[in-house]
């Protein structure tokens, strides 16, 4: 469950100033300044965060961009897996919903 309610139109944002990220081999260590916590991200969750920093978007926007960046298809990364990863990033404070849109 995410920290708060969200819809398919919720814009997800990651604030670059709120964390420090360093890559070691194929994983990423992220320090979240506001929570004071350290997180270990895999290539998928790291890409979600990077995409949400560069250009916040709704679940579908981020899903398309991340799959494109990682050269994956829906079979490699089902939307359910992607959504649960977004929710987990929300729970630990690395991603948050920016606003709701009726568009």
């Amino acid at each position: 469950m995410a920290v708060g309610p969200y819809t398919s139109q919720t814009i997800w944002i990651a604030e670059a100033d709120d964390f420090v990220i360093r890559q070691f081999e194929d994983v990423y260590f992220v320090f979240c300044k506001s929570a004071g916590t350290t997180h270990l991200l895999n290539f998928l969750t790291a890409s979600i965060v990077k995409n949400a920093v560069d250009k916040p978007g709704n679940m579908k926007d981020l899903y398309d961009r991340v799959l494109n960046d990682l050269e994956l298809d829906a079979e490699d990364c089902p939307s359910e897996l992607f959504e649960s990863s977004v929710v987990q990033l929300d729970e630990v404070g690395l991603l948050k919903p920016k606003e709701y849109s009726n568009a």
Partner: peptide
């Protein structure tokens, strides 16, 4: 691996959480 090493050393540190970003 570096990642395994970092995870183990975070567990072994007595003041990692207290020092925050500087410790990271």
């Amino acid at each position: 691996t570096k990642a395994e090493t970092i995870m183990r050393l975070i567990e072994s540190a007595t003041n990692y959480k207290l020092l925050g970003e500087a410790a990271y």
